[in-house]
Design a protein around this nucleic acid. Structure first.
Lengths: 175, 175
DNA sequence: CGTCAACTTGATGCTATTCAACTTTGGTGG
DNA sequence: CCACCAAAGTTGAATAGCATCAAGTTGACG
């Protein structure tokens, strides 16, 4: 925003897609936080490809729907969760993602890195960096997480972490 | 959420699409707030249609990208705006939508209905209904809006309302 | 060993929530 | 027609939770 307030609205990982057909500007910025390889398509040929190759549009639709689901889950977090629940949710999401990559035993203690600064976490969660720091410390004091240094987290009991996220245990309904 | 906290994550209007190909449940509920006509497709035939008729997937992609943009704008609102800015933003969005439907002179005073209860506004904005009521009253006291009854709003000066939303005057960048 | 960025911690204030009482509005049946 | 009722909305007081401002601390790196 004009006065410096910032809100992160998405997190792109390898294989994700950026930009949209049929529009030349976006109301948000995109910043790389690591080195990366970006595969660029020229707009016109790409739009041609979408018409000639139906699978491209179908795959893009699927990816966009996944992003929309993620955005909506994040809206719940931003609108209704407490600072502590926000931190627990973010840590749980990162833990799950890392566990999936290294297909890890889901019930054992599990260690991983927070790939972002406290400030980036704050921008993601709609908090200040001080509140992030305090709530991380609080979860540590409560024994829900163990910190090794500032960025390395061990989760001794994943269920205990999930209890702190405020999330439903059941899920939802609907087609 | 289990304890009753609610967050509205989208608002469907006539011609919008509901549900997603390739999945049978959603992590959210959908509630009709008015009578409506719902046009249902059987999953399998519809997925067939997407394959045989490329335009369908392309149009769905466009609609989904629009919803994603709206969701991201809403994330900024939920994460970073004050209660007053949230209310002003919601009123501005409804005003713009109604003005577009009735292609109205953009600089004149303009009257329209809030199509929702204070509670629904609160669920949408991530606030309590009491805070919604207070901030609506505050904008009224400040002369930014005029209330006729509880649901009918007149905006004497749209620019003044926009000033209260906290939004950039310029927009953003990017392909 | 000095420096800087990232992080932590403390004190204080403000915003939105909570709990509670009250008012207004629209609809229903006597 | 209006008395009554429920739902919607308003308002007040007290409080909780997060932000803000301000020092410190830690750790990596030259």
């Amino acid at each position: 925003m004009e006065d410096g307030r910032r809100q992160m609205v998405g997190l792109l990982l390898p294989s994700d897609f950026l930009g949209r057909p049929g529009r030349t500007i976006a109301p948000y910025d995109v910043t790389a936080t690591t080195d990366l390889t970006l595969c660029c398509f020229k707009k016109k040929p790409f739009e041609g490809l979408m018409i000639s190759t139906p699978h491209v549009a179908q795959r893009l639709l699927e990816m966009t729907l996944d992003e929309l689901d993620a955005a909506r889950e994040w809206m719940l977090l931003l609108g209704r969760k407490t600072a502590r629940e926000k931190i627990a949710s973010l840590i749980a999401i990162i833990a799950r993602r890392d566990a999936a990559l290294s297909n890890h035993n889901p019930r054992a203690a599990f260690t991983f890195e927070l790939p972002m600064t406290r400030e980036a976490m704050a921008d993601y969660l709609g908090l200040t960096l001080e509140t992030v720091s305090r709530q991380v410390s609080a979860l540590k004091r409560a024994g829900v997480i163990v910190l090794v240094g500032k960025r390395t987290v061990t989760v001794p009991d994943f269920a205990a972490l999930m209890d702190e996220t405020g999330d439903d245990s059941d899920g939802g309904l609907l087609v």
